[in-house]
Design a protein around this nucleic acid. Structure first.
Lengths: 227, 227
DNA sequence: TAGATTGTTAATCGATTAACAATC
DNA sequence: TAGATTGTTAATCGATTAACAATC
């Protein structure tokens, strides 16, 4: 399989569109479709075809004029590019409701993530198992993380404990943190921090909702004293 | 307090930063801090102070030179702007692990979201309660949604059933959909769709992880949140 | 007053979109 | 061949950042 030279710089926007393409491509692959054009992919998502072409460029796959790209090739290359070919072992700190849900979401393995254990400071949770995974006390994290070569740490504790959870994991050599707490976190340089903040997505939704229901009476013409 | 004229167009980027500011401001408010400057807020998140100022502009709040903005005023105005003052009732379709977690995450009420019931096609789940909330059969959704004036629908079904779940809710008059399925969804015009896709966030994380371990290639990091 | 901060306009930067030659 | 599609360069658009006068 011929790969062309990949662009040196990949934007976060591109990175976020790749999983969308991948999901579609896997459906096509399962249907036995062999080739797909950027135009077809773009139509599916209402994107610009040129944008899709530029996005796919990062995978190094080359297409064929009039035919498009090999579906199987794209699936492989996107997975490889995202690091989803082999799952990375991860520890999760905070076995609350959100933490439990993530522990039970086995699909993550398809996305390069394998949560191997949970940690919690609550002694009543420690010792139990959630979806077959042990809940351990926080003080066991450092040694275990080193011994098991854990790459990813997931933070699902309340906002006020997020920084100390992160510090504990970084101190244990974990270099990539997936944070679900709505708190600004400080990281040493070299550590990767990705925030999966549901509240940001919710903010966009609820703001749109009230704007739509306020229709007409826009918020642009109100310089009325507020009581 | 006088509100100034607000910008007519608000970018999605701005909308997503507001919950970050809000969280910080609520902490400051609890600490009894009365005023805060954009410079201070910016420092907390490693943002540009001008960006913070522009973001806050959308709330209509006015600051005072040398003093900054009233913390209490900002908290109120951001909440109002995001529609987080009063919770919107929501139905959730798909009582799997992720659905369960969302049902148990009572903090959503702080973010304008009140999940009142869940729906599932699995007869074994129907009739049970999850965190006190009833699990009902899908066919009861349309009537109930209309009777209860439900505004928001949450989709936590597998990707292949996401479109039909959405269609069911939109048919029942629900105008805003919060989608967790990794599938491209079609909506009629006028309906609000917001995708809360964890896989996108995960893609950024795992890609960063393998690129760090591969060292060598350079990638854009301009849009990476510096939190 | 002096100087930090607001509010606003202009410059910069990067991502998206348009244009088009090359290709199959 | 004819025409759809790739790959690439240029134009556009929008968000971020810089500059600076007004203000307290």
């Amino acid at each position: 399989m011929l790969l062309k030279e990949k662009p040196v710089v990949v934007s976060r926007s591109t990175l976020k569109r790749l999983p969308l393409y991948l999901h579609l491509l896997e459906v096509l692959l399962a249907q036995g479709v062999e080739h797909v054009s950027c135009t077809q992919i773009a139509k599916e998502f209402d994107f610009d075809p040129t944008q899709v072409r530029k996005d796919l460029e990062v995978t190094g796959e080359v297409g064929t004029a009039r035919i498009g790209f090999r579906v199987a090739g794209l699936v492989d290359s996107i997975k490889e590019f995202l690091g989803w070919n082999n799952a990375h072992d991860a520890f999760l700190v905070g076995a609350g409701n959100l933490g439990k849900a993530l522990l039970g979401y086995h699909d993550f393995e398809k996305y390069g993530l394998n949560i191997v254990a949970a940690f919690d400071k609550d002694p009543r949770k420690v010792g139990s198992r959630i979806f077959g995974k042990e809940v351990l006390p926080l003080n066991k994290l450092p040694n275990l993380a080193k011994r098991m070569h854990i790459h990813i740490g997931i933070v699902t504790v309340p906002a006020e404990h997020a920084q100390s959870a992160l510090d504990l994991m970084v101190g244990a050599g974990i270099m990539a943190i997936w944070n679900f707490a709505p708190a600004p976190l400080r990281i040493p340089s070299g550590v990767i921090l990705e925030n999966a903040r549901l509240t940001q997505s919710l903010a966009v939704l609820t703001n749109n909702l009230i704007r739509h229901s306020n229709q007409g009476e826009t918020y642009a013409n109100r310089d009325v004293p507020k009581i």
